[in-house]
Design a protein around this nucleic acid. Structure first.
Length: 262
DNA sequence: ACATTGACCTGAGAGC
DNA sequence: TGCTCTCAGGTCAATG
């Protein structure tokens, strides 16, 4: 579930595992996932360095290994990481494997190959190049900024939240959760929200991300009062018990309570 | 500028 | 059981 909370959890995972370990070698087994660099160049760039620092912007994870060199990872729909002691424990589907001098391995696992591996000189440069909006967790997106940003947008509120060039980090699942907690229909016009609705949505955005990160983005650990655990066939609104509805909003499946979300 | 669709990949689950 | 179909948390390009 690689939205912002998932990627943040992976970032902390690297901090707790592979950070400061000397890189001995690496293997890349997904040429199509590489952007702007060959496997050969990536491997020789990493070799004999160590990860010194991690960063994140939206759904992108950055791992520094040199003065002006950061590894960039995007997890697509199902990508994840695993730090293992034995090479035999590296899961099937590892497209990137970094071998450390301590004998451990960090695997980037993209079963479906939907994701991205690259390099950048620093995260800020990358964010600018990609045209990403501010990270959804930055304190800079205060209520008045949020209002101003949404006010200028055509279209529905859900796709606006999910637009990475608008705000970076929110995907299909958590946008549904935010809209549920704010009591808003995902099809509501983005620029037609009143002040109360904007304040509710802003609060829900921050709250959902904060709690989801606290719970390590584990779907099994989300509060029962949330939509997320009910986001399945036969799910009901945790507030009023009404069966949830499933609709398409700008091509994506949205789950909502027809009673609580207007 | 927006929505829609299909493509990219693979696995899981539903339905027959 | 095994086959086929549809769909899935993300992005991107093409089309209307």
């Amino acid at each position: 579930m690689p939205e912002l909370p998932d990627v943040e959890t992976r970032r902390r995972y690297i901090d707790a595992t592979a950070l400061h370990q000397k890189i001995k070698s690496a293997v890349v087994n997904a040429p199509r996932m590489l952007k702007g660099i060959s496997a050969k160049d990536l491997i020789s760039a990493l070799k004999s360095h160590a990860f010194s620092e991690t960063g994140r912007h939206g759904k992108f994870l950055f791992v520094r290994f040199d003065d002006k060199a950061w590894l960039v990872l995007h997890f697509g729909m199902s990508g994840t990481l695993a730090y293992t002691k034995d090479e035999s424990a590296v899961p099937e589907g590892a497209r990137l494997r970094i071998d450390f001098a301590n004998g451990y391995h960090l695997a980037g696992i993209w079963q479906r190959r939907l994701g991205r591996i690259g390099l950048t000189v620093d995260p800020a440069t990358f964010v600018k190049q990609e045209g990403l909006g501010p990270d959804a967790m930055t304190p800079g997106i205060d209520l008045s900024t949020f209002k101003r940003m949404l006010g200028g947008r055509r279209g529905s509120v859900k796709p606006a939240l999910m637009d990475q060039k608008f705000i970076a980090g929110i995907g299909n699942i958590y946008s549904d959760e935010m809209l549920f907690q704010a009591g808003l229909d995902p099809r509501h016009a983005a620029d037609g929200l009143d002040d109360d609705q904007l304040a509710d949505l802003h609060r829900a955005m921050r709250h959902v991300l904060r709690i989801a990160i606290e719970r390590q983005a584990d779907p099994g650990r989300m509060p029962h009062s949330w939509l997320l655990p009910q986001r399945r066939k036969g799910g009901v609104c945790p507030r009023c018990g009404t069966p949830l509805r499933q609709i398409k909003v700008s091509g994506r499946t949205a789950h909502l309570c027809p009673q609580c979300q207007r």
